[in-house]
Amino acid sequence: MSTKESNELTQDTVYDLLSNKRRRFVISKLRRAEGPVSVNDLSESVAAWENGVEVDELTDKQIKRVYVSLYQIHIPKLDEAGLVDYDKDSGQVRLRSTVSELDSYLPEQADDTPNGIPWEAIYAGIAAVALGMYAGVFLFPDAFAWLSVTALNVTLFATLVVVAGAHYLTEQWQ
């Protein structure tokens, strides 16, 4: 009996389905789509993603290589598992509601920053301000006479401890 007929995905089946980056990308792409997507469009999107280029920069060989694997392996496997409906005649693929069974196994789909806080930007900002302050202290000692290196070190360390603590707590509350 196929997984599609039993309407139940086992943990082993889920891990098998998600073990391939192309299948994960297809699921993600279909989640963002407003309706069915053609295998051709999926092939172009996957090829562009894998090659790190825009779709219009792809070669026919790059697209064909992905198309063959999606057509012969990945989409049929997702269809067999009951996660997508695949119409071979029209070449259209759409997600089924059963894809929600994967939610606990996948990272948040909508946003790379689930809590809305761009932590890497915060850390980069702290580093940029600290670098500027250190440069000022060492390159323009008269202008920054009011700021000692020790005070700068303590302030930077305290700021990083507070931000890292907030980051940790925010991640724990999700």
Score class of each variant (00 low, 15 high):
T3E: 10
K4E: 05
N7P: 06
T10Y: 09
T13F: 02
D16Q: 13
L18C: 06
K21L: 07
R22M: 04
R23E: 01
R24E: 04
R24W: 04
F25M: 15
V26P: 01
K29R: 09
R31D: 08
G35V: 08
V39A: 12
V46T: 02
A47L: 08
E54M: 10
E54K: 14
E57D: 08
L58E: 02
T59L: 03
K61C: 01
I63M: 05
V66F: 00
V68Y: 03
L70R: 07
I75D: 06
P76Y: 01
E80W: 00
G82M: 00
L83G: 02
V84R: 01
D87Y: 05
K88R: 13
D89N: 12
Q92E: 15
R94Q: 02
R94W: 01
R96H: 08
R96D: 07
E101Y: 05
D103C: 11
D112N: 12
W119P: 00
A121R: 14
I126Y: 06
A127Q: 10
A127H: 04
L131E: 15
M133F: 10
L139F: 05
P141T: 09
P141D: 11
F144Y: 08
F144D: 11
A145H: 15
L147I: 13
S148I: 06
V149D: 10
V149Y: 08
V149P: 02
A151T: 12
L152T: 08
N153C: 09
V154W: 06
L156P: 01
F157Y: 08
T159R: 02
V161P: 00
E171V: 05
Q172C: 04
Q174N: 12
Q174L: 06
Q174V: 01
